[in-house]
């Protein structure tokens, strides 16, 4: 009995896996057949050539570096900009949510700057920060590491991309805290500082995490676009553009594939974090 059930379970899982994978497999098959038949890999590369590129992530493509190297440059830029955006966005959001004066003062400025596409900041950011890198900020001229590719202008644009969703979500979270929880904490002896630490922060946490997830997703969008701009010389977005200029469409599609996978992984990661920490959300009683 036990074994039969086990097998049944396993075959059930196999079937659901196949159902999920089937559209992808069909797409790849049709793509491969069409590409081979067309015979112009510089426009429409066969799947096999894209896979061949993906199988060699360390191969250097002329002056532009490898798939893996450029991906790590992009990721590093995103993580630094995102962490800055998270620190500033959460702090300011909590401050604005708890002090009406701060909110009234800052909100008009925020509302003017928020609709501005982060990419529009790039020329300005590069003009202001030149091509200064993070090591140069600390007085190191050249470290011969991936850090030499982390320009302040890029960080700034990523920061702008992540900052607004994190800020607005944090603000919504803090202002939406149920008054009952604040009153409960006060009657149980919590000081204003303790109410802040033990009520506002945990109660707003689900929305803060939502802001972080949206912010990280947007940061990953923004870095790809920023790296495709003129003046960029590294990153997976740059490699994609460089490959397109050289008619290496197999490399372009391989880069697209990596961008998609990284974006999905970041989102998945953030979802796991949310599920782990705020499983109570929506079940308040």
């Amino acid at each position: 009995m036990e074994t039969a059930k086990h097998t049944e379970n396993r075959s059930g899982r196999l079937i659901s896996l196949l159902t999920a994978a089937a559209p992808l497999l069909v797409l790849l098959l049709v793509w491969q057949l069409a590409a081979v038949r067309l015979g112009r890999p510089w426009i429409f590369p066969p799947v096999t050539r894209v896979l061949e590129q993906l199988a060699h992530p360390l191969r250097t493509h002329y002056a532009s570096g490898s798939l893996l190297g450029n991906t790590s440059v992009s990721l590093l830029r995103v993580l630094i900009g995102f962490v800055l955006a998270a620190v500033v966005g959460i702090s300011l959001g909590v401050l604005m949510g708890s002090a009406r004066f701060v909110r009234r003062t800052v909100e008009p400025l925020i509302e003017i700057l928020r609709p501005l596409c982060p990419i529009a900041w790039l020329p300005f950011a590069i003009a202001v920060f030149k091509l200064r890198t993070v090591p140069q900020l600390f007085g190191l001229a050249y470290t011969r590491t991936v850090w030499d590719q982390v320009q302040l202008g890029m960080i700034f644009v990523i920061f702008v991309g992540g900052f607004f969703p994190i800020l607005t979500n944090t603000l919504d979270g803090v202002t939406g805290v149920r008054r009952s929880y604040v009153l409960l904490a006060r009657t149980l002896g919590a000081s204003p500082a303790q109410v802040f630490r033990h009520v506002y922060l945990p109660a707003a946490m689900p929305q803060i995490l939502t802001g972080l997830r949206q912010g990280l997703g947007l940061c990953w969008f923004v870095i790809i676009a920023a790296e495709m701009m003129i003046g960029s010389d590294s990153g997976i977005g740059y490699l994609l553009m460089y490959a397109a200029d050289n008619a290496a469409m197999d490399l372009v599609v391989a880069a697209m594939f990596i961008i998609g996978i990284v974006g999905a992984s970041l989102n998945f990661l953030m979802r796991r974090v949310m599920h782990r920490f705020v499983s109570w959300k929506g079940r308040e009683v």
Binding site: Y181, L184, T187, L188, V199, M205
Partner: peptide, 28 residues
């Protein structure tokens, strides 16, 4: 300090366990 209030709804912090809810006042 010495006046406790049991509300009709939202009587517990949903992000805390039962134990840490009960210990809230002591923690404060």
């Amino acid at each position: 300090q010495s006046v406790a209030y049991v509300f009709q709804h939202y009587t517990l912090f949903p992000w805390r366990t039962t134990l840490t809810n009960v210990a809230f006042g002591l923690q404060m």
